[in-house]
Design a protein around this nucleic acid. Structure first.
Lengths: 247, 247
DNA sequence: CGTATTATTGACTCCATTCAAAGATAGTGG
DNA sequence: CCACTATCTTTGAATGGAGTCAATAATACG
């Protein structure tokens, strides 16, 4: 019953944190109306990026904490050999940029996977803003802590069997989409098979084979970049396979 | 040339952040004398823990940010099946506890690997202390950011070949010991083979085989829990093997 | 409509795991 | 101090899961 507000980023003057449709998942979550107002004046609402463009690049000076308004992005680290490693995949309302906190340079690159709009708390403002709005400080600590446990979960996922990894990836994505009021059943992948493989540390061939296998089992249907989850419970069972061994 | 101060935690009254021998690597790093004084009054210097005792357990309410004064600790997450996953291994001056930031409960357990002493910024004090000492806030953000990139590096390491993982583990440990003024050559492992395997997501058999193999190559000598690095450069070459393929 | 990119499918290989058994080490009580 | 036990470590042989290489198919894009 919150007043409906246009999703168009183009109507720039109107869009504030107070009326943003993502206020339930983004920074404002848990902050008072007054705090949000304070923050909203600082937050920079950025222009559109197109597929393949960077929000920031590995090695860039830390630019701030970003949050996606619309679209999806991937976070990529380069290993010693220059190979990509997809460390994260971001949906609207999710925060990124924490990889720049450690030494004021971004340790990863963030790239738009499709047309994307985002907001930013500029690096130079974080300090003063946190001092003025202690609740924001607490929220930022909470978010960066969340980024840490998410990375641990990702690491844990990638130690499981290829089948469990793919199942886990779909379940995670489904849940995160649901949280944002989007369909957790009809999933539109913006990642390529190679990207998914990169995220799960599998080859694209293995990802392809396993999506087909899940389809053959009747758990999902796959058609190009669109995946429909037919049986989430069975998918979950598959994900937890190792614990209920032997059946 | 800083005045030498007893390492004995038992002489409680004397030990402050100002005179702690770890001030170059721990929280005080980069803070003014005055800031350190302020913090030192809040920091709680804890009693001795013995091998196998917990600093905190998964599910416990967030207790604060801890730093090890003497000894080593492991950070362990339990996966869905109840299997251990060793997410981190901590040396004196290293901070832990960030796994409790996200939802005020610790996502991991921290266990002493040997007799251990540590200090603590209690959870309830972090907020006010950060407000009084903005430089501390910045340092904490830096540290939690570091924890995040460290976890990504760990994740990346665990995607490499078993040989590279073991070599990388030894190199990392060696460097971290060196930073603390300890020998990076004569390494005393406090982790068991199973723990190392757990950290590197290898079986203890594989770890054992590869330590033996590195010994046969003349890069290290192994005797029980004591490892001596004989040729760090060659060890580094081995770690970077995949990039200089074919030789 | 044609070309480039991305995805699928198959056959074969190899690295790390598993299973199993022997050997070393550390901790305990007589 | 030594014997005894439990735990940790080493070593070997066989297995299997995901990778690699390669060819074809589908999709996106100009």
């Amino acid at each position: 019953m919150t007043p409906y507000v246009s999703r168009e980023i183009n109507t720039k003057l109107q869009v504030t944190c107070q009326n943003c449709n993502l206020s339930e998942v983004c920074i404002p979550r848990g902050l008072s109306h007054k705090d949000v107002e304070r923050i909203s004046n600082i937050v920079v609402r950025k222009k559109i990026l197109h597929k393949g463009e960077y929000l920031y690049r590995q090695g860039d000076p830390f630019r701030g904490i970003l949050t996606i308004k619309a679209g999806t992005a991937k976070l990529v680290a380069l290993d010693l050999d220059g190979n990509e490693f997809l460390t994260g995949y971001y949906l609207p309302g999710e925060l990124l940029g924490f990889d720049g906190l450690a030494d004021d340079r971004h340790a990863c690159s963030a790239m738009a996977l499709e047309t994307l709009t985002y907001c930013e708390i500029p690096a130079e403002q974080i300090d003063s803003l946190c001092r003025e709005v202690p609740n924001l400080m607490r929220e930022l600590f909470r978010h960066v802590g969340k980024a840490l446990t998410t990375e641990t979960d990702h690491h844990l996922l990638n130690q499981r069997s290829a089948e469990e990894r793919v199942a886990g990836f779909l379940l995670d994505l489904s849940d995160r989409l649901s949280c944002r009021g989007l369909s957790g059943i009809e999933i539109n992948l913006t990642l390529s098979r190679a990207d998914i493989g990169n995220y799960l540390r599998l080859t694209m061939e293995t990802v392809s084979r396993l999506l087909k296998s899940l389809e053959n089992m009747g758990l999902i249907t796959v058609s190009a970049k669109s995946i429909r989850i037919l049986d989430k419970d069975k998918l979950r069972d598959l994900f937890n396979k190792s614990s209920s061994e032997g059946v």
